[in-house]
Design a protein around this nucleic acid. Sequence first.
DNA 1: TCAAGTCTTAAAAAAGTCTTAACCGGGATT
DNA 2: AATCCCGGTTAAGACTTTTTTAAGACTTGA
Lengths: 224, 224
Amino acid sequence: MQKTILIIEDDTEINDMLRILLQQNGYQTVSAFSGTEGILVHSREISLILLDLMLPGRSGEDIIRDLKAKHNVPVIVTSAIHDVSKKVDLFALGADDYVTKPFHNEELLARIAARLRTDAAAQTGETLTYKDIVLNKSDFSAECCGKSIELSKHEFALLELLMKNPDRTCTKSLIYDTVWDCENSADDNTLNVHISKLRKKLKECNPDEEYIETVWGIGYRLKK
Amino acid sequence: MQKTILIIEDDTEINDMLRILLQQNGYQTVSAFSGTEGILVHSREISLILLDLMLPGRSGEDIIRDLKAKHNVPVIVTSAIHDVSKKVDLFALGADDYVTKPFHNEELLARIAARLRTDAAAQTGETLTYKDIVLNKSDFSAECCGKSIELSKHEFALLELLMKNPDRTCTKSLIYDTVWDCENSADDNTLNVHISKLRKKLKECNPDEEYIETVWGIGYRLKK
DNA sequence: TCAAGTCTTAAAAAAGTCTTAACCGGGATT
DNA sequence: AATCCCGGTTAAGACTTTTTTAAGACTTGA
């Protein structure tokens, strides 16, 4: 689900910059340019507020107090003020983070993500995707073409290994090592069988696509 | 209730300084001086972790990954490194805040308080709901379809854990860790039995609904 | 083209995991 | 002391996964 961030910032340029930055990174945004506007916005649909301190109309402190009194939306304050006692005051009022200007975009994004990280799977890269397959490591589920597919533990580990290494061939010994946690006797057919089952399940889901490629005498890899 | 903060910091002087600072400000503390020690501490009673990056033994990154994989305890990283990409990496791994050394004590305290506040807010959400089940953490009562159900301590903790993580599979080891506070012996059937009892009670209340799903070889999760 | 080696797949066999009921013991309650 | 409740253990049976087997197909290289 897309998260919406409310930007409260009177400087048009910075507001624009932030809006574009956030939108490029998959957030929806709502812009406000003064404190009074800001407080009007119904924070029910807002996941996070980015609040500039230097506002005409109302002080940032006032706004924080109000926001926090009514709703529990996370607030990240941005400000050019380095003064420690100012920061401390704002934290005491309920600010959740404080980023001093000028800031690096990446750091701001990271701090935003850290605050929003409730739905861990979506944000922290706990999902792997390849073509139309989505692996979700947090709940051991897998999807293909939107349909969910049931994978056993080994099948999941096998597909995960392949998807973690989309550009290389996974040798049989690497696979045994990773999935089975041991070297394997030479004439073991186990891996072949598991690959076969995995292919079958994927094919049931999407008959038109070939996902796993055999590398003769070596191992397997994902098809480009 | 007094909160306990785990300080992971190899420099004895800084560790001492932090310990005294935190104790003076009403926190209990536990000190660890290396990564390996740090990870041993049972984070059940720990409200927050202050993690220094430069540790002998294990890298801070490793520790964060481990901690966040198992428990959802907030982690504030302290480090002399100003590098933005480093910060970004750590946030991505699950760090909740990042304070560069040297820092002002007041700011550190403010950030700790901010973290604990949001955590407390999330916890004192008091009730958890899932489908027609309502768990009331303040008095350990549970309801299903309006009817109240009697749960034992472990059953409650079990259901609470599942309901806190509605989108992920709780692995058996996570469950033993959280509900029983220990790693389990390999061939222990205890969890299975408790799940069975819990299902039975829920079924008595609402025969038409399946709540808990088995993830073969992994653990359990709530049905979507 | 042929032979040797490798891979695929279905199906049978084996191993492992889960569910449930029943039982047992200890601590709390009566 | 008798009873109840909780937590844990055991055990049987059901169910799922994994491995083995085996037959046939494919690839490779001489």
